[in-house]
Amino acid sequence: MNTTLDPAAYLACPHCDTLHHSKHLAATERARCARCDTLLIAPRARSFIHVIALSFTAMILMAGAIFFPFLKIDAQGFSNASSVFQAAMAFSDGLLLPLSIGVLAMIVGLPAVRFAALIYVLWPLTHGRPAYRHARTVFRLTEEMQPWAMAEIFIIGTAVALVKVAGLAHVSLGPAFWAFCALIIVTALKNSYMSSWTIWDAIATKKPI
């Protein structure tokens, strides 16, 4: 068909491959795919600084979630407390050990790495400096990690487990639980501020938004 199109003038929806005209959006605008409605571009005013700040928040909360007591169970005079770390290591028996490592990575490792990576990528961009070395690779990996970072799923799992245990014993929630909940909210907020197209643009053009 039309083979003379200039690739630089377009963007393709990653979902449905529909070509769109590339366009610089105002800070509050949002761009969606015309066919499949996937959010393509959503720059927000000072969005990078927000993402960085929220990532910091998330990392602080993550530290709390790891080190504070998570859940405590009481039943007929017996009690047992568990931290997030212990929950992940529940599979550390023998053959299930790889699963343990996987769970630990999914609920703690990958989210933490993603926050750190986002800060690494965005920090120079907010100050109008060119991106750090390997920012491109780092950000791409960050994007690829996203489905595997399951902190929010973990907290839902906690809720389900609590429902199951509720009849058996009294469960008290530790500060780590609330830290985790806050972490989920912060992560969701952060995601709403993030637009990968914008970030890619910023990395590529080395210009601040």
Binding site: R46, I49, H50, A53, L54, F56, T57, I60, L61, A63, G64, F67, F68, P175, A179, A182, V186
Partner: peptide, 18 residues
């Protein structure tokens, strides 16, 4: 940015709990 209040608040709470 005002947004820095958020991590600051989180830090204070976490340190407070600790």
């Amino acid at each position: 940015s005002v947004i820095w209040v958020v991590p600051l608040f989180a830090l204070i709470v976490v340190l407070g709990v600790a």
